[in-house]
Write a protein that binds this DNA or RNA. Structure first.
Lengths: 220, 220
DNA sequence: TATTCAATTAAACGTTTGTTTAAATTATAA
DNA sequence: TTATAATTTAAACAAACGTTTAATTGAATA
C-alpha cells in the first residue's frame, strides 16, 4: 500500500514544527506566558512530544537561542574578518546583521526580550555566547580602532549598543505597528543600515567635527 | 495606649510595597513568570491585597508602565523644549534620560522587555505613550534638523533607535554582569551619554566626513 | 460608646501549569 | 514475517495560577 510513503510526512517534521510554533508564540507572549498545550496545538502535535524531543520547556528555549546566536556569530565572523579596511567591514557586518534580524524577527525578539530572566541556567548560556561576540568585536573593531585613533573604546559598551541599535526597529515594531502614524511605510525603506554605520564612523574618529561644540570625548 | 500611633506604619505603605516588589520581580522573571503569591510574600503583604488595590495583575503592570513612561516623557519635554540650539538640547536630553534609566533600571527593563507581548490592552496602552514620544521627537529634533540640513529624518526610525541605544547597557546588564570580562568596571564610567550624543550629531549633518568612503546617505 | 469605612486575613474557587507514565502505533531492519 | 527501535497517544500527576469570598481587624467619626 501507499500508506507507508505518505504518512512519513509526520515523523522528523514534528520536531521542526514544535520549534517553529515555539519561536512564534514565545515572541508574542513570552516564554513564561506560553503554555505547552497551546504550543502543541499550534504545532499540530501531541502535548507529550515536546518533552519527548526536548526534555523540558527550558531546553526548547535553549535551542531557539542557539539557532539565533550561532547565526549571528557566523555573520560577525564572516563580515568582520579579512583584510578590508574597518570602514568597509563594519558596513558589511551591519548590513548583513540587519538582513539577518529581518529574516529572523521572532528569533530576535525571543533572544532579546527574554534577556533578563532570572534563570541562572539561561543567563550562563547567554553569557557564553556574549563572551564570544565581545571577543570578536574587541579584536576586529575596538583594537584596530585604538591602534588607528589612539582612543580606547570598550567592546562591552559598544557591543550591546550596536546590537540594540540594529534591533531597535524590530524590538519596538509590535508597538509601532499599532501607532498608525502617517509614515509607517518609511520603515520599509533602505538606509537603515547606513544610519547605524555612520554612527560607528562618528565615534571611531573618522568624524572630527562632532568633537566641537561642548561635547568632548576624552574618555574613549 | 500608644498602639494606635505605631501600627499605622502599615496601611498606605502596603500599596507602595506591592509596586516596589512587582517592579523588582517583573524585571527579573517577567510579568507572566511572576506569581502573585511570590509577589505578595516579597512585599510582605497578604495575597488578596494585590487585587484589592489594583483590581488585577494586569492593572498593576499598567501602573508600572505609567510611572516609567510619564517620567521619561517629562524629561523629553523639559530638555528638548526651549530656545537653545539643537546640539545643546540633545546632549541635555540624552544625559538626563540615561540618568533616569540608571535610577529606574527595573522599571526600564519591565517596560522594554514586556514590549511585544500580545495583550491588545497593553499594546494600545504603550502605543498611546509612544505616539506622544514620537510627536515630541519629530517636533523638537527631526523638523529642526530637516530645516537646517535639508534632510528628512523619520522620528519613527530615530525614536526607537535612540531609546534602544540609551537603554542598551541596562538591557544587557543581567547577562554582561555574568560574563566576568576584564573591564567590568568600565560600565560605571562617564561618557556613555557623550558617545550617544555624538551619534546624533553624526547623522544630523554636523559631521560631514562620515559621508565619505562608500556610505552615501541620500535616503535621510 | 456605637457606627462607619478602609485595611487585612485565611480559605477556597475552578483553571491551567510542566511533566510523567504506560500503552499503542508506526517505521526500520533482520 | 518477526524483532527492534522510534513516534505518537490519552490520561493522570501534583503544584501553581489569578481571582473571589466572607469574616475580622483597626482607626476615625458621630
Amino acid at each position: 500500500m501507499n500508506k507507508k510513503v505518505n504518512i512519513k510526512q509526520t515523523g522528523p517534521e514534528s520536531r521542526e514544527r514544535i520549534v517553529k510554533a515555539a519561536v512564534k508564540l514565545f515572541a508574542r507572549q513570552g516564554f513564561a506566558g506560553t503554555g505547552l498545550r497551546e504550543l502543541s496545538a499550534d504545532a499540530g502535535v501531541n502535548l507529550a512530544m515536546i518533552n519527548y524531543f526536548f526534555g523540558s520547556k527550558k531546553e526548547l528555549l535553549k535551542e531557539i537561542l542557539d539557532v539565533f546566536f550561532s547565526g549571528y556569530m557566523a555573520i560577525a565572523r564572516k563580515e568582520l574578518s579579512g583584510d578590508d579596511d574597518l570602514q568597509t567591514k563594519l558596513g558589511r557586518f551591519i548590513s548583513s546583521a540587519i538582513t539577518y534580524f529581518e529574516a529572523h524577527r521572532d528569533y530576535l525578539l525571543v533572544t532579546i526580550t527574554e534577556l533578563p530572566h532570572d534563570d541562572p541556567d539561561i543567563i550562563e548560556y547567554k553569557a557564553t555566547w556574549g563572551r564570544q561576540m565581545i571577543e570578536i568585536i574587541d579584536r576586529e573593531i575596538c583594537r584596530p580602532l585604538s591602534a588607528k585613533t589612539g582612543r580606547r573604546i570598550s567592546p562591552i559598551v559598544i557591543g550591546p549598543m550596536l546590537t540594540s541599535m540594529m534591533a531597535s526597529r524590530f524590538l519596538f515594531f509590535p508597538v509601532i505597528k499599532h501607532m498608525r502614524s502617517d509614515n509607517i511605510s518609511a520603515i520599509q525603506d533602505e538606509g537603515y543600515s547606513e544610519i547605524i554605520s555612520r554612527f560607528f564612523l562618528a565615534i571611531s574618529g573618522y568624524c572630527k567635527e562632532s568633537n566641537k561644540g561642548g561635547l568632548s570625548c576624552h574618555w574613549i
